[in-house]
Amino acid sequence: MDGETTRDLAWEHAAASIIDAGRRLDRRGWVPATAGNISVRLADGRIAITRSGGHKGYLTHEHVIEIDIDGCAVRAGDRPSAETGLHTQVYGRFPQIGAVLHGHSVAATVLSRATDGDALYLEGYELQKAFAGQTTHLARLRLPVFDNDQDIARLARRIEPELHDCPMGYVLRGHGVYAWGEDMPTALARHEALEFLLDCELQHRKLR
């Protein structure tokens, strides 16, 4: 198998993982309408990301495009997600990260709007142990909340100082979560764990 064929197969695998992830997130109701975006960094440094505007439950290979580490489309005419800069920020900061997910769940949207603070705190949930470094449900975990901003470069600058301390990911207020991992299965597991915890917290608050 020559190098070009291997390269093409790697891209096909990355695109397929994005398509599968989109369907999984859609089944959970976390990427309604055209919301959300998904990306994968290949071993050779290429980045595959969802094209702007597509429904993540109905992705095809045509909806996955290549960008560089600066977030620019490699092929003329391709339009990456408006929030591409938040994906490339994670890749630029953490060389081991291979996948980034962004969804718009009801729980993340409502809870982030219900707090005026810069974080949500989660404590007492067994699934907290899904995140790196966590060994007990007794820990009190801080999930950063950033005010949403249509100026992605400005938003990224605001996130940058705290990015090193986001083991669960982070939330954009009134918008949704960002989660990542060394590969797509890990990113999906962390995203799902975070969404579960946020949903639990939302339901718990309703009972107070």
Rank of each mutant, 00 (worst) to 15 (best):
G3N: 11
G3H: 13
E4T: 07
E4W: 00
E4L: 05
T5H: 07
T6S: 12
D8K: 14
L9W: 11
A10N: 07
W11E: 13
E12T: 08
H13C: 10
A14S: 07
A14P: 01
A14T: 04
A16G: 08
A16N: 10
S17L: 03
I18V: 15
I18W: 07
G22N: 10
R23S: 07
R24M: 08
L25F: 13
R27D: 13
R28A: 07
W30K: 09
P32N: 07
A33C: 00
T34L: 00
A35W: 08
I38H: 04
S39M: 05
R41F: 06
L42Q: 10
D44L: 08
I47C: 07
A48G: 15
A48Y: 00
T50P: 09
S52A: 15
G53Q: 13
T60R: 03
H61R: 14
E62F: 00
H63T: 04
E66M: 05
E66H: 02
I67R: 07
D68T: 11
I69L: 15
D70H: 12
D70V: 02
A73M: 11
A73S: 14
A76V: 01
D78L: 01
S81L: 02
E83N: 07
T88V: 15
R93F: 03
Q96K: 05
A99T: 02
A99H: 03
A99F: 09
H102Y: 01
H102V: 13
H104N: 13
H104L: 10
V106F: 07
V106Q: 13
V106G: 02
A108Q: 11
T109D: 13
T109V: 10
S112M: 12
S112F: 04
S112H: 05
R113W: 02
A114M: 15
D116M: 11
L122W: 12
L122I: 14
G124P: 08
G124D: 05
Y125C: 06
L127N: 12
L127P: 03
L127F: 08
A130V: 01
A132N: 05
Q134H: 06
L138Q: 14
A139N: 06
R142D: 01
L143F: 07
V145C: 15
N148I: 01
N148E: 00
N148T: 15
D149I: 03
D149G: 04
Q150C: 02
D151K: 02
A153K: 08
L155Q: 13
L155C: 03
I159V: 15
P161F: 12
P161D: 09
P161R: 12
L163H: 06
C166Y: 06
C166K: 08
P167R: 12
M168H: 12
M168E: 06
M168G: 05
V171Q: 00
R173D: 14
R173L: 08
G176V: 04
G176N: 10
A179W: 01
G181S: 11
M184Q: 01
P185D: 10
T186G: 08
E192V: 02
F196D: 14
F196P: 01
L197K: 08
C200R: 12
E201G: 04
E201H: 14
L202Y: 15
Q203Y: 11
Q203N: 13
R205V: 00
R205K: 14
R208I: 07
R208F: 06
